[in-house]
Design a protein around this nucleic acid. Structure first.
Length: 297
DNA sequence: AAATACCCCTGACGGC
DNA sequence: TGCCGTCAGGGGTATT
């Protein structure tokens, strides 16, 4: 469940259960997820206070008193569940009665405040790593990472500069984490629809040949902010599992205008067209062929 | 540099 | 009921 809004939703849920408390016990139930866990993973966490819980793009970052950062990525199916001592676990297919472990519960963090934080990931495309805070920015995960879409760097000017001269389709450019980091398939489709831009239009068409932003570049920057902020506000999107760490659901999926709506009528008033699906670099793109045009203004 | 193809893994769903 | 193909919010690597 992992684009930026879902990861931010998880961060907000984990924060009160983790920050200011210590790991009292870490149970690592297999040697790897997508990648091997770092050496002595559990030992390096146990006893450590979590001083802050942050997020960069789709990564969760738990700062430890040791000076290391616990880096966590949810992949496609990673999820966290927080349970409090004495409380009954939310019912769910992967979680049974309190204290028992479900089929894909790979890591269990016991926290000094009585909370238990369980990481479940059926597909195991997620991963965890430990990196010194002092070199986090230059570590392999972040060295080539693009700008934060909810930060100050995202603007029409930035989009024009990043996309300048690129003939790659807009869809691919927006999914490229080396340019803007945090968007995924859902929010790219939604942002392109809201901006009226065709997913196959060349990314460079948002900049003039001088590198100056077109009106559409400014609109796209604003729309990306808006759609992400709305989704965070809604607690993310719930597709096949809970989005929140207490087992409750996000509800932004009810606000999708094109994502996963192939064949449904376009929501634009007076538009008689139909949401269409196409495949770009192996992934589904949903768009309205009437409302989303290749021309840039 | 940039674009595509394929890979990782499990589960859900539709068609037969 | 089962089997099979397809698809899924991620991204890394190898190949053109």
């Amino acid at each position: 469940m992992p684009e930026l809004p879902e990861v931010e939703t998880v961060r907000r849920g984990l924060e009160p259960a983790m920050v200011g408390a210590r790991f009292t016990k870490v149970i690592q139930r297999r040697p790897d997820l997508r990648f091997p866990f770092p050496e002595r993973f559990a030992e390096r966490l146990e006893g450590q206070e979590i001083t802050a819980l942050g997020r960069r793009a789709k990564y969760l970052l738990a700062d430890l008193a040791s000076g290391e950062v616990l880096v966590m990525h949810l992949g496609m199916s990673g999820r966290f569940l927080v349970t409090k001592e004495g409380a009954t676990r939310m019912p769910g297919e992967f979680h049974h009665e309190h204290g028992s472990l479900g089929a894909h519960d790979h890591v269990v963090f016991r926290i000094s405040n009585g909370a238990t934080v369980t990481y479940n990931d059926a597909r195991r495309f997620g991963f965890m790593d430990l990196v010194p805070r002092s070199t986090l920015e230059t570590s392999k995960h972040f060295a080539a990472m693009g700008i934060e879409p909810l930060g100050n760097e995202l603007s029409g000017e930035t989009i024009a500069r990043l996309f300048q001269g690129r003939r790659t389709p807009l869809k691919a450019a927006l999914l490229d984490q080396r340019l803007i980091a945090g968007l995924g398939n859902i929010y790219v489709c939604e942002a392109l629809f809201r901006t009226g831009l065709h997913p196959e239009a060349p990314a460079g068409s948002l900049a003039t040949k001088d590198g100056q932003p077109t009106d559409r570049a400014y609109q796209l920057a604003a729309v990306i902010r808006d759609v992400l902020a709305e989704a965070v506000e809604a607690g993310g999107s719930t597709l096949r599992d809970h989005a929140q760490v207490d087992g409750s659901l996000g509800y932004f999926q009810h606000s999708f205008r094109v994502y996963d709506r192939e064949g449904e009528p376009c929501v634009t008033p007076d538009c008689t067209s139909t949401v269409t699906r196409l495949v770009q670099s192996g992934r589904s793109t949903f768009y309205c062929p009437e409302c989303q045009k290749r021309s840039s203004s």
